[in-house]
């Protein structure tokens, strides 16, 4: 079986990361911002997996497990915050939250 070259895996991870970043920067709906963040986290996880399989080393997989846990916790907190925000402001538009303006 022919293995996938590492470059392809890394390019895919890079594209996913860039897509996530663009989502964070352009989306106004905070739910989508959170989803874009998830994509960015998973893109970095993919990069770890690809690297681990290239050097046949378990560390990358362990790292991915940790990122997965972290992402789950982050989503839990993030969704909680979104619900709070909706209750208080009756909107999920992120531009409303700009009281920290200097």
């Amino acid at each position: 079986m022919e293995s996938i070259p590492i470059e392809h895996g890394l390019i895919l991870a890079g594209i996913l990361f860039a897509l996530g970043l663009v989502g964070v920067l352009t989306r106004r709906n905070i739910v989508f911002v959170l989803m874009s963040l998830e994509i960015m986290i998973n893109a970095s996880g993919l990069a770890f997996i690809v690297a681990a399989s290239r050097w046949e080393h378990a560390d990358g997989q362990i790292m991915f497990l940790m990122i997965l846990t972290l992402a789950a916790a982050e989503v839990a907190v993030g969704l909680g915050l979104i619900i709070q925000m909706y209750r208080r402001y009756h909107t999920v538009d992120i531009n409303v939250l700009s009281q920290m303006k200097g």
Binding site: L21, V24, L25, V33, I94, S98, K101, G102
Partner: peptide
């Protein structure tokens, strides 16, 4: 001048970090 960069907009902060 520095106070002007504090827009309070999360996306601008993300953009400047990126």
């Amino acid at each position: 001048m520095i106070a002007r960069t504090q827009t309070g907009q999360l996306r601008w902060y993300a953009l400047s970090i990126g």
